[in-house]
Nucleic acid binder design. Structure first.
Lengths: 346, 346
DNA sequence: ATTCAGAAGTAAAACGATACAATGCGCGTG
DNA sequence: CACGCGCATTGTATCGTTTTACTTCTGAAT
């Protein structure tokens, strides 16, 4: 492995000069053009790569950001992660991934991993657990810049990026309303998820506005904290047994929507002819479902990107010894119409 | 941040002693039990965490393994990645992720990223591109232990882990055969994918054995190199237009199978009643499809785990200055029967 | 009494970069 | 002609570990 010393030797200059030039910092300004060119050429020819360990040791910076995801095999996390990486990459940071594997007990281990790697900031993708409170406690004692994606923590020191859940479900219901549906069933999300309340609120407020009555007999609620698919399926079966007519369904999320469609199909109904279904999230396979799902797209790339942008700013502030207030961003969701919805039969 | 020096100070011993004890290496043997206990206790109390940069700088080891995936949002990659991480974690390594984002041109960038982080080995998850040849060239010049998952490179220096494609498709066809199907359609995979030929070969060999004739009119082939969904859908429509009767279909992979089911449903047919469909891969949402997919499960966790195991051994060999021959492992796939297949109608 | 073997530990030199203060050197100026 | 000044560059300490090669001490054997 070729070191900076060898480059300096071959160039006939000191290591300091080489360091300054290759780092392209403000100090490089003071070095003459020919010398700079020469150093770059030689470094290139020798295939010099700075030793990140030495660099980080001396400069006390790791140039890395920790990303804590609750489940890397969940496309939700994966998409956000990709956006974060793309963004960080352009600004010279790189990401260190910590996967909770859907197991809250791994939290300590993952956090330790990140702290050990001396990450300069943490981006966490929220999930069911009480991650945020734990994180909050740790963050505040260690003064590490952090942003949480998917959970808004109003009025506290940790930044956040969230989707506008209310606006999303309003669009979903409006879509069905405009298609002429009025007997609409709902599968509510689990109570311990902030999203559930917000999404439900959006539905209620839109229903109020257009004077649509929500029949309590057509509302069911997810209780469990595991996959929403299994429970969604059962809830849909239960709903069908009530023998109360409806022509459309708003599901808590795409997985629930898929489960509901499956249950409807099993019972001999055809989606969307007999019942329109709309989901939430726009997970990748929604487009490939049978039928392709009408759903609310939350811009995960945008959310990841914003998260990265925020931590970059926080890090910058921290290295410059500035105070930087926490930022809270909310991204707008979008209705995607596919084939799981259609006008109410005449 | 508390350093080893402070721990040593508080304990009244030298940094050497602390280092030896905390690393728990063979050298720690030479230190008396009481001293050892004391050092651990103090380190713990002070919350001492060794500085990985200093450690790596001095020891010339990074304790990290690079994992190059072709698309982190692809569940195939994500599942393997998770298994790799779990495995590495138990042996004190950690992984550095490099995501090609489905773009072969990113290869150099990703490789540089990994080399810059000074990874001690590379695990690559193969994809459509000519990744393996590039990787091979780079690996051999730099002498970095490597294993590639998903592509067998017979008789060359890079290790591999693959699924037994032939055995997989044999099981798929056998399943349909035992259900009484004989007029069976096939969607072959793209030619530039090694898997395609192997999977096809398994089908042919089983058909031969049980004297099942494969009607060339019922075989279509994917040409493109993008998502197999879009093309699978079109191919299925084309197949239906030929008006040649069939009661079952073997698709190249799960995405193709989903596309085919969608096309069948669109044309008014019911799966599996009118046509049984079997896929390959067992991607996570196969279980949630409408109907849930009968498919061939390739044990991705196992593949990731084996990959990690192999690089660990390669690294061990390399640090001990031993030669270690490349290893080639093949994992057995398994038929998973769900609801997209049923006996042929009487 | 001297030597020796192990036990229990230590001092100091790396590792490869960056940070900081300091240097030589023309050059314009009073 | 001494002086200060900016320019282009350099020398060296330093970051926090691990590693190598000692040192010191104790007790037993010769």
């Amino acid at each position: 492995m070729v070191t900076i010393r060898e480059v300096a030797g071959k160039c006939g200059v000191s290591v300091t000069t080489v360091s300054m030039v290759l780092n392209n910092g403000p100090a490089a300004r003071r070095i003459s053009e020919p010398t700079r060119k020469r150093i770059w050429r030689v470094a290139d020819r020798l295939g010099y790569r700075p030793n990140v360990f030495a660099r980080s040791l001396r400069s006390k910076r790791s140039y890395s950001v920790g990303v804590m995801v609750f489940d890397i095999t969940d496309p939700y996390c994966a998409q956000i992660l990709r956006a974060i990486e793309s963004h960080l990459q352009t600004s010279g940071y790189f990401s260190v991934l910590a996967d909770l594997q859907n197991d809250p007990r791994q939290f300590q281990r993952c956090l330790s991993l990140l702290l050990e790697r001396r990450v300069e900031a943490i981006i966490a993708i929220a999930n069911w657990t009480n991650l945020e409170t734990k994180l909050l406690a740790e963050i505040s004692t260690r003064h590490i810049p952090a942003v949480i994606i998917g959970r808004e923590l109003a009025g506290n020191p940790i930044s956040s990026v969230v989707v506008d859940n209310e606006a999303g479900t309003r669009q979903a219901l409006q879509h069905l309303y405009e298609l002429g549906h009025s007997k609409i069933a709902f599968i509510k999300g689990p109570r311990d998820l902030v999203d559930s309340a917000q999404r439900w609120h959006g539905l209620e407020s839109f229903a109020d506005e257009v004077r649509l009555t929500i029949d309590p007999q057509l509302v069911v609620e997810i209780k469990g904290r595991n996959s929403t698919y299994a429970e969604g399926y059962q809830l849909m079966e239960a709903l069908l047994e009530r023998n109360r007519a409806f022509t459309a369904l708003v599901a808590f999320d795409d997985l629930t929507a898929c489960a509901a469609i499956r249950a409807l199909t099993k019972s001999g109904r055809v989606v969307p002819r007999d019942c329109s279904v709309v989901g939430f999230d726009d997970i990748p396979n929604s487009a490939f479902y049978n039928p392709p799902l009408t759903t609310i797209h939350q811009q995960l790339e945008m959310q990841g990107s914003l998260g990265a942008e925020i931590v970059e700013e926080l890090i910058r502030a921290s290295t410059e010894n500035r105070k930087s207030p926490p930022r809270h961003r909310k991204v707008a969701p979008r209705l995607i119409v596919r084939e799981s919805t259609c006008p109410r039969a005449a």
